[in-house]
C-alpha cells in the first residue's frame, strides 16, 4: 500500500495532463496535417500562401525582439531595487507586482485609454501645444504607433512576472558572495556583472523561457489596441478558427507557434546552461 500511495496521489494530475494536455497536442498536430480526411500539407500551404501569414509571423517575432530585452533590463532593475531596499520593501514590491494579476485584455484596454483618439496622450499633446487637435494614433496609416502601443502595453503588463522570478532568484544568492566581492574591491557594477548575474542564471533562464513563450502568445493586447490592423500569429489562429471556420489552418498556425516556442526554449536552455556543480 505505501508503495502505491504516491502513484495514487499522482493519478488524478497525470490523468488530467494526459487528457487535457498531451491528447490535445497530438490532436492539434494531427489536425494540422489532415484535410478532408486525407493527410496533406495543404493546411500549411494555405496558411503560408495567405498574404497575412508572413506579416503576422514577423510582427510576432519583432514584438518579442523589442519587448523581451526591454523587460529583461527593467525586471533586473526592479529586482535590484527591491533587493536593496530596507524600508517600504513590501509595499513597493506589491506595486511592482500588480500587473502580474492583470489580464492581457485589461492591459490592452488600459493602454487604449491612453492611445485612443480622445485619449490621455492626445489630451497631453494638445495641452502642451505639440499638436493643434487630437490625431488618430491607432489608425492603419501609422501601424508603427499601434506597434509601439502594443509594445508598451506588453512591457507594462508582463515585466512583473520576470521581476518576481528574479527577486526570488536574488534571494537565493547568499549575501556572503557580494560581501566577498566587496572585500576584493569590486565596484557596484562589477559586483552586479560578475557575481549577481552569473549566479542568477537559473532564474534568468526560467524568466526568459516563460516570457518568450508568452510573447509568442500575444493576443488580447493586440486585438484591444489594433483590432485586425496588426496581425500576429495568435490573432490569425483565432481568425482562421472562427471567421474562416478552417480548423486545419488554425491548427497549422498552432504548430508554428509551438515550433518557435520549443525552438526558443531550447535556445535559451543552451545559452544559459549552468553546469550542475556550479549552482548556488
Amino acid at each position: 500500500m505505501p508503495r502505491l500511495l504516491p502513484y495514487l496521489l499522482l493519478l488524478p494530475a497525470t490523468a488530467f495532463l494526459c487528457l487535457f494536455f498531451l491528447y490535445p497536442f497530438v490532436q492539434v498536430a494531427h489536425d494540422s496535417v489532415m484535410r478532408g480526411g486525407v493527410y496533406t500539407l495543404e493546411n500549411f500551404t494555405r496558411m503560408a500562401g495567405h498574404w497575412k501569414f508572413s506579416t503576422a509571423f514577423w510582427n510576432t517575432m519583432l514584438l518579442a525582439a523589442v519587448v523581451v530585452p526591454v523587460q529583461l533590463a527593467m525586471a533586473l532593475t526592479m529586482a535590484s531595487i527591491v533587493t536593496k531596499l530596507q524600508r517600504g520593501r513590501s509595499s513597493i514590491l506589491y506595486i511592482f507586482a500588480i500587473p502580474l494579476g492583470i489580464s492581457d485584455l485589461a492591459a490592452g484596454l488600459i493602454w487604449l485609454s491612453v492611445f485612443e483618439q480622445s485619449g490621455f496622450l492626445n489630451s497631453l499633446l494638445v495641452g502642451l501645444g505639440v499638436v493643434d487637435r487630437p490625431i488618430l494614433l491607432l489608425g492603419y496609416q501609422n501601424t508603427w504607433v499601434i506597434f509601439i502601443a502594443i509594445a508598451l502595453a506588453e512591457v507594462w503588463r508582463a515585466t512583473a512576472i520576470m521581476m518576481v522570478i528574479l527577486v526570488a532568484g536574488m534571494g537565493l544568492i547568499p549575501k556572503e558572495y557580494g560581501e566577498a566581492a566587496d572585500v576584493f574591491g569590486a565596484s557596484r557594477w562589477q559586483k552586479f556583472r560578475r557575481v549577481t548575474l552569473p549566479m542568477l542564471k537559473p532564474s534568468l533562464q526560467t524568466a526568459l523561457i516563460l516570457r518568450v513563450i508568452l510573447a509568442f502568445e500575444v493576443f488580447a493586447v493586440v486585438v484591444a489596441l489594433g483590432g485586425t490592423q496588426l496581425p500576429v500569429l495568435m490573432s490569425e489562429t483565432y481568425h482562421w478558427q472562427f471567421a474562416m471556420q478552417e480548423r486545419g489552418v488554425a491548427a497549422a498556425y498552432a504548430m508554428v507557434i509551438l515550433a518557435v516556442s520549443v525552438a526558443f526554449t531550447i535556445l535559451i536552455l543552451r545559452l544559459l546552461h549552468v553546469p550542475k556543480g556550479a549552482r548556488v
Binding site: 495532463l17 487535457f20 494536455f21 492539434v28 489536425d31 523561457i209 478558427q241 507557434i257 516556442s261
Partner: peptide
C-alpha cells in the same frame, strides 16, 4: 518533466482541439 514541459508550450492553443472534443 511532464509538468515542467507544459511551460514550454503555448497552452491556450489547447482550446482548438478541445473545442471538438
Amino acid at each position: 518533466f511532464l509538468v515542467v514541459m507544459t511551460r514550454a508550450f503555448p497552452l491556450p492553443l489547447l482550446a482548438l482541439p478541445l473545442a471538438v472534443m
